[in-house]
Amino acid sequence: MSDDQPVDLPISTTPPESEAVESTPSIPCRHLRNKGMFVYNGEVSSSSHDDYDNTIYWCVKTMKGYGPDDEMVSRDDCTSAERSCYEPF
């Protein structure tokens, strides 16, 4: 590869008008889950890295990556009381 042009990527990922979302300090829904909650007991994940987050979230109501309202499950998304399925602790 060193002297060649890179092979084509099948995609170009630059979503228009999309900004990275900073994590929010709001209280998450009580149905939000990720594995670190159980494995690290609220401590920093031993596999965590300062510069990236690959946490896989799920909703305990659906056991999926999207909630009962069909929207995405994440730390950013599951803090809004405007969401019909949101339940605080």
Binding site: S18, A20, E22, S74
Partner: peptide
């Protein structure tokens, strides 16, 4: 991945910061 980011692609779901089935990390 190629289908997901193509212009006019069907949306998988809505969520904070998702545009055209993509969400940027920090």
């Amino acid at each position: 991945e190629a289908q997901a980011v193509a212009p006019g692609a069907a949306s998988v779901f809505k969520g904070t910061g998702i545009v055209n089935n993509q969400k940027k990390a920090r």
